[in-house]
Design a protein around this nucleic acid. Structure first.
Lengths: 154, 154
DNA sequence: AGAGTTGGTTTTGTTTTGCAACTCGTCTAT
DNA sequence: ATAGACGAGTTGCAAAACAAAACCAACTCT
């Protein structure tokens, strides 16, 4: 039995980064969350080259983040919609937006403001401890080795 | 006075994406959060080419996310540490990790497990409504146009 | 004196992007 | 019926980003 200091090659962060960790893909996702669904609209709003956009959309579909569905035949047309897996990226996108608004663009950069449908409160969701519900930041949490930190037999 | 549907060119998400939204930078940040500080260690753990790593470290320092400080002279040596601005990226990195663990790598990919120092609860922080404290997801929130959605006079 | 460590920079290819032009099937106006 | 126009891409080429390896500098250790 061998213990490796860290199993970085199978890191979940790296896995995610290799799927959505490039500027172009993030722009596409931003549009998706803003309910954009059509190729042309994606292209106009992101300003990406059409081939790159086509490539990214296909990759996102391949990864199960977007779903390509026909919304009319006759002129056959498709739209791209977030799947549940895609919707689960929300906290990440939100985080990026928040951080950018805080440090880079200021309030002027907040494209959308969020309101909680249930209680009506306006503002961005915060990270909270799953146990006690208190708001937390990086320094409030302690990192323990996770399961990926242990290597199987050599 | 002209209203533009969306002021995407000054989007805070895009700003953030252009700073940390590439695979290499994310890998560097992962290491930073794992308390890695030296060039060589970054290089070994991320597997990045040395020139690229040097470039990214410089960029992160330039953006105020990392701080380059001398930790010894005689052989003059520097280390790279997260600033407060860098620490504030925590929710994003956490989000990436979570999502990857859920959809890509499974539990095997969780390099670290987190424990709340204050209450001892183990698990990942959740997004909660700033008003009522209830856990929220994308569909619980409603998007209203933010300040960036308004264009100045044409 | 020679080998090894740390922290880079330079050089040289390879891969990825971006841009523009082009295709293809269909619709629309004349 | 005929000439655009549109949506959704594909193709070809130049420019930029990336990776690999060599090189350099300042020390330390033996």
């Amino acid at each position: 039995m061998v213990w490796k200091t860290f199993g970085r090659e199978n890191c979940s962060l790296e896995a995610t980064a290799s799927i959505i960790g490039d500027r172009q893909t993030l722009l596409v996702l931003r549009e998706s969350f803003l309910r954009v669904r059509r190729f042309g609209e994606f292209q106009r709003n992101t300003g990406l080259a059409r081939n790159i956009l086509a490539d990214r959309l296909q990759a996102l579909v391949g990864n199960g983040i977007l779903e390509r569905r026909e919304y009319q035949d006759r002129p056959q047309r498709f739209e791209y919609r977030l799947t549940q897996k895609g919707l689960d990226l929300y906290p990440i996108l939100l985080g990026l937006m928040e951080w950018g608004a805080k440090y880079e663009t200021g309030k002027e950069g907040t494209l959308v403001t969020l309101r909680h449908k249930a209680c009506g409160a306006v503002g961005s969701p915060q990270l909270a401890c799953p146990g006690c519900g208190e708001p937390v930041t990086a320094s409030d949490m302690e990192a323990l080795p996770g399961r990926g930190a242990v290597l199987k037999t050599a």
